[in-house]
Each structure stands twice: as structure tokens, then as C-alpha cells.
Design a binder for these strands. Structure first.
Length: 519
RNA sequence: CGGGGUGUGGCGCAGUUGGUAGCGUGCCUGGUUUGGGACCAGGAGGUCCGCGGUUCGAGUCCGCGCACCCCGACCA
């Protein structure tokens, strides 16, 4: 909301050109006062074009940028230091926001007794195909197989039932940072790996209303992380019955549009009602001396978000990381010709580095590679701002700043850096958000005709917003006929209710829903 | 789990009718270089995915596995 308004203002100031429909990249570059025009060309020749083969581009970028590698075990990934640093920044902002909302961290075991998983009927059924089992230990068959957690509702529910005695123990608001494992048939780095890192929050409440409020509150935290930190505009809303979490009363999610128009569920928040409380006997003694079941919630965000970052912001030169999450916000490239220059340049580099340390995340590339090589390398790795320091800059006591998103150049006096650089990073942060928002808006369609719906899904991709009567069978049929799924029923609905007929059944519509093909 | 594809130095690839493996890039050493992926010279690096078969001889032909990628069905 407020970030959007700010972003629009910023957009006017710096003049981000609107992206042509369907295009991944702005075809123009900014040429403001004090900036330099750069030729638009493809500097990095060995990256697959996004428009040519988006998933190939994605895979190449993940590996070339050294975010992750394939592991020797199918479907598993190795997160490399650069990718892990990104995750740590994401973790940090999420964790900070959690703690502002009374969340406490804890840790529960990786292994879950088989019997636990079976205590919630829908839950077992939903997860059964994806669970990996440990059946041997200490050289012997185990008496009871142990599941490698696909999620921890059950084992945490077990603890909750012991910890909660009275209404005075509520609400209980716990989070854990953990790995989980879901045996996936088809995997992709970050987006869907058999093992992945995430956080899972679990809460218990006195009333359903309070549980609902917490569910919505945490979804809004995810919304804020996505929009403000990851610069990814998302649509928040409710999942359909077909798409909700196994065992939940209601599931909410934030959905983002990737650069190829497909949707990515970026985080989910579930109101579990009293389903798990009944399964795990999570009861409390209320003020009226009655024993009552708690209402529980769970909510999670995973390393998948990194996949989202890559696919939302990346361009044909590689990654573009939002400044607030980028492992390096600025990379300094020293340039010289003669030995004398080298000394002066490195002096200045050291001075600038020292000045900026602790204020922005700065990396100096002191390798022997040529400046041109470094430009391409760090652009590919998505560093938001490049700082060039060469003999000319030493002479003028300024540095050259170059934005990753549009390559706009800007000479800045050294003494102005401490104020200008953070400012520039914020401008970039907002511009990325704005660009992604415009892309999403250009690729969000509305229609009342199912034929047109099919055509849009098949040819244009993107989101399709339609009138909907919340019919589960119709949803399944649409999925079979078009491969599009109901991503989310947005909170943002027309004022005064929806008028008209459901796009598929023709029944009176009860809401507007977003359909898309998804990851 | 179905359909398709690919497995050859770290990465990307070539390898003809079967004759004992090569190119680009990266890596190491030395030197010259550095404002958009520099250059020269020297060098290291391969059980050609695995197993079996055909053959005097297999990266190449045949069979059986395995892995990975892409497209579907299932999912954060």
C-alpha cells in the first residue's frame, strides 16, 4: 500500500520506462541529467535468452551465479555461499518481523513417529505420497518407522498438547527454522527440491477468531517481506478447497507472477481450525472451567522465495537482486593502466571501502580479471550497484555508480557517497518493485468468456481474473482442460460484491478468482 | 510414473564407414595487461555414465541398467 504509493513517486522521478507487453526488459535506458547513456546490448553471450527458453535460462543463472548446485542425490540441492547469503538475508528480515509479532523460535526433531502422521485423516492422505521413511537404525529394523518430516504440525501438536493446560497458556506462538523433505517426482533448484529450507510457524489459540486473526496477520508479514524486501508484488488471498493445505480449515497464500507469466505460490498461512487440536488432544481449561480444544494455525515460507526472486527480477544478463536482500549491495571495480595509477586507485578504493563498511554491504573485486570481465560477472550475479574507480575518478575525487537494472551511470563525489549510495539503493529497490508490478498488471487479463480464457492461458500466459462460483468440480475441469489452476481468491474483491455469472458453470458468481499456470 | 532428449577433461561441445580422443573456455606457471568478458609462451587435467556382449580392435555397434534435463500427471 504505502510502498506502492512511494514507488510510483519514485518511478516518476527516475522515469522507469514501462515495459512493453510480454517483454522481459525495458528496451530503453534512462538518460537523466548527470547520467550517461549506455548502449543496450547483450554483454553476456553465453546465457540462454529468457524468451527463448525460460527454464533453461533459470537453471543456467542459478548455477552460473553460484547460488546452488545439483547434489549427488536426486532432487536435492547444494546451496552455495552466495545463495546461502541471500537466504540469510531473507531469514533475517522474516525473523525480525516475526519477533515484532510475538513469535518465539524453537526446534523440533527431524524424525516423526509414523503414528503421529496418521492422527489427522486429511493430513495423512495429503502427504502420504511425499513422505520419506526411516525404517532401519542401529543395524536393526525399527519397531515403528519414522517419517522424515514433510512438515511438523504433528510433532509440534504433540508438544503443544503437553505445554498447554489453561487459557492462560494461550496464545502459544512458535516458529522453527528447519529443513523438510517431500519426495517430489519433478524437481527444480529452489522452486521444488526434495529437501528444502523454510520456517514453519505454529500457533494455538483460545478461539477460532483469534486463530483466524493470527493466520491473516502472518500472511500479511509474508506480503510485506515479498513486497518491501524482495520487491515482488504479490496477490494475497484465500486458496480454494481444492488447493488448500491437507488438514487445514482454510489456507491463505501470496501469489507472485514470474517473468514467464506463470504463478508462484510464495508463502502460505493456514487456519487449521480444531482439526489438529482434536487429533493431538490440544486442550485447555477455559475460564468457565470447561475443557476446550484449541484452534491452531501454521504458516511457512521457504527457499522457494529465492526462486521467485530470480524469476521476477532477472534479465538476459543474469540476476538482479533487490538491494535489501542482496549479499553484496555494491561491488567496487578498480581500474588502472599504469603502476602509478594502480597505487592511487587502490588507495581510493580502500578509503571508500572503509568509509562504507557497516553502512552498505560492499565487495571489492581485487581479482586480476579485467574490468570488463568484472562488469559482466557481477551483473550476472545481480549486484544492484557497481562502483567504478579509475584514474579519472581519482583525479576528480569522485566515483562512477552504475545501476544494475538499467545500467544508468552517475558520477558521485566521494564525500557524497554515504548519503547518495543508500538513496540509490532504495531507488533501485522501488524501481524493481514497480517494474515487476507493471509487468504483472500488463499480464493480468479479465474475461467473461471461457473460450477467451482458454486462449489467454494457452497463448499469453499470465493471470486471468474471472467471476467464480467456487465450484470444486468446475475447478478440476478447468485444470484438466487448460492446465491452469485457481491460484487465489484475492482479498481485494469488488465493493458491494460480485455481480454476474461464473465463467465456467454460469451460476451466480460469489467472488473473483485468479487462474494461472503455475510452478 | 508416462512421453521425449542427453550422458566424452571443471563447464560447453566435436568425434565420419569401428583403428586407441580433440576443440572452445576455465585452471596452473611466467611475462605483458586492465574505463564492457585482454594477449603471448609453457603446463596440468580423461576408467569416454555403469555392466555385459559382438569384434583382432568399441567413445562409436547390440543388450540391460543408472543418472540428469525437458514436456505431462502429483506438490511449498
Amino acid at each position: 500500500m504505502c510502498i506502492t504509493a512511494m514507488a510510483i513517486v519514485i518511478q516518476k522521478e527516475v522515469g522507469i520506462p514501462p515495459r512493453p507487453e510480454g517483454a522481459r526488459l525495458p528496451a530503453h535506458l534512462i538518460c537523466e541529467k548527470g547520467t550517461y547513456m549506455v548502449n543496450e546490448e547483450k554483454y553476456v553471450e553465453d546465457i540462454t535468452d529468457q524468451d527463448d527458453n525460460f527454464s533453461k535460462w533459470y537453471n543456467q543463472i542459478v548455477r552460473k551465479a553460484e547460488l546452488a548446485d545439483y547434489a549427488p542425490v536426486r532432487g536435492c540441492m547444494i546451496i552455495r555461499p552466495y545463495g546461502y547469503a541471500l537466504w540469510e538475508h531473507l531469514q533475517h528480515t522474516v525473523d525480525t518481523r516475526f519477533k515484532e509479532n510475538d513469535v518465539e523460535n524453537a526446534y523440533f526433531p527431524l524424525l516423526i513417529p509414523q503414528s503421529f502422521l496418521q492422527k489427522e485423516a486429511e493430513h495423512v492422505e495429503g502427504f502420504a505420497p511425499e513422505v520419506a521413511w526411516v525404517t532401519r537404525g542401529g543395524g536393526e529394523e525399527l519397531e515403528e518407522p519414522l517419517a522424515i518430516r514433510p512438515t511438523s504440525e504433528t510433532i509440534i501438536g504433540h508438544s503443544f498438547s503437553k505445554w498447554i493446560q489453561s487459557y492462560r497458556d494461550l496464545p502459544l506462538i512458535i516458529n522453527q527454522w528447519a529443513n523438510v523433505m517431500r519426495w517430489e517426482k519433478r524437481t527444480a533448484l529452489f522452486l521444488r527440491t526434495s529437501e528444502f529450507l523454510w520456517q514453519e510457524g505454529h500457533t494455538a489459540h483460545r478461539t477460532l477468531e483469534e486463530a483466524e486473526a493470527r493466520t491473516r496477520l502472518m500472511l500479511d508479514v509474508y506480503r510485506a517481506v515479498a513486497e518491501e524486501d524482495a520487491a515482488i508484488p504479490v496477490i494475497a488471498g484465500r486458496k480454494s478447497e481444492n488447493e488448500k493445505f491437507a488438514g487445514a480449515l482454510r489456507t491463505y497464500s501470496i501469489e507472485a507472477m514470474m517473468g514467464d507469466g506463470k504463478a508462484l505460490q510464495s508463502a502460505t498461512s493456514h487456519n487449521l481450525g480444531d482439526n489438529f487440536a482434536r487429533g493431538f488432544d490440544i486442550q485447555y481449561l477455559d475460564a468457565d472451567s470447561q475443557r476446550k480444544y484449541c484452534y491452531t494455525t501454521s504458516w511457512g515460507m521457504s527457499t522457494r522465495m529465492i526462486g521467485g526472486l530470480i524469476m521476477v527480477h532477472g534479465d538476459k544478463s543474469g540476476l538482479i537482486l533487490p538491494p535489501r536482500l542482496a549479499p553484496y549491495q555494491v561491488v567496487i571495480v578498480p581500474i588502472w593502466r599504469k603502476e602509478k595509477e594502480r597505487e592511487a586507485v587502490l588507495d581510493m578504493v580502500n578509503r571508500v571501502e572503509k568509509m562504507l563498511k557497516g553502512k552498505v554491504r560492499v565487495k571489492v573485486d581485487r581479482s586480476d580479471n579485467t574490468p570488463g570481465w568484472k562488469y559482466n560477472e557481477w551483473e550476472m550475479r545481480g549486484v544492484p550497484v557497481r562502483m567504478e574507480i579509475g584514474p579519472r575518478d581519482v583525479q576528480n575525487n569522485n566515483v562512477m555508480l552504475v545501476r544494475r537494472d538499467n545500467r544508468a551511470k552517475e558520477p558521485v563525489p566521494v564525500e557524497a557517497l554515504e548519503t547518495r549510495l543508500p538513496e540509490l539503493l532504495e531507488e533501485l529497490q522501488k524501481a524493481l518493485y514497480q517494474r515487476a508490478l507493471e509487468f504483472r498488471e500488463q499480464n493480468t487479463h479479465t474475461t467473461e468468456s471461457y473460450d477467451e480464457f482458454k486462449e489467454i492461458i494457452a497463448e499469453k500466459r499470465g493471470f486471468v481474473r474471472v467471476k467464480w462460483a467456487e465450484d470444486s468440480a468446475a475447478e478440476t475441469a478447468i485444470k484438466e482442460e487448460t492446465k491452469a489452476t485457481l491460484r487465489v481468491i484475492p482479498f481485494d474483491q469488488p465493493e458491494g460484491g460480485v455481480q454476474g455469472k461464473c465463467i465456467y458453470t454460469g451460476k451466480p458468481a460469489t467472488c473473483e478468482a485468479i487462474f494461472a499456470r503455475s510452478y
